[in-house]
């Protein structure tokens, strides 16, 4: 897991994550956040939310909480981290700022204090569950009791000591 990031791997698979992304954006918009979202090439969503009193502008670019919803064959991974509003990744110019490590650490501290990352991941999880029919169909909840590798997201068979996907040892 990255240094300034919260994430959760959910055993839910949806063929289209757009309704979940739209609900997430609506939820934060109603709370006064400025919101932007775009679909990724993998069919996931990258959502940014920002508010003046929680995030600051760095060399003219607004920082934000980035919420990523990424599908894979067996699971959906939801991540929350600090980045720039409306863009994916941090431009090189900001990475070169001597104060950037201090700033990102401070902003992540404020996010954690406000539990904004937990709120975002929790909302996405609830939305995913609401959109996942329990019957066979285009979407499904994949074995709630199954174990998943925290490193790669692959399903780990019961009793296995190592992940069949990446070889990581089960804790």
């Amino acid at each position: 897991m990255a240094m300034f990031e919260s994430s959760k791997i959910l055993p839910i698979v949806l063929s289209d994550l757009t309704p979940v992304a739209n609900e997430t954006m609506d939820y934060f918009q109603k709370q006064g956040y400025e919101v932007a979202g775009e679909q990724t090439i993998t069919g996931g969503w990258a959502i940014s939310i920002t508010k003046g009193n929680l995030f600051k502008t760095v060399v003219g670019l607004k920082t934000a909480l980035k919420i990523s919803i990424e599908p894979s064959p067996m699971v959906t991974t939801v991540k929350a981290d600090v980045g720039l509003f409306g863009t994916q990744g941090i431009p090189l110019a900001i990475g070169y700022l001597v104060f950037w490590p201090v700033l990102i650490s401070q902003m992540w501290g404020m996010v954690r204090q406000a539990k904004l990352d937990d709120e975002a991941i929790g909302f996405v999880e609830a939305s995913l569950k609401a959109h996942a029919p329990h019957a066979e169909g285009q979407s499904s909840v994949v074995g709630e009791q199954a174990a998943y590798c925290p490193a790669c997201g692959a399903q780990i068979p019961q009793g296995a000591k190592f992940c069949p996907g990446c070889g990581a040892k089960r804790s």
Partner: peptide, 16 residues
């Protein structure tokens, strides 16, 4: 530092 949020402001002076 920003007196309200405690966030470092020195970076904002770079561009100025």
């Amino acid at each position: 530092f920003d007196p309200k949020t405690g966030i470092l402001m020195l970076d904002e002076y770079v561009a100025e």
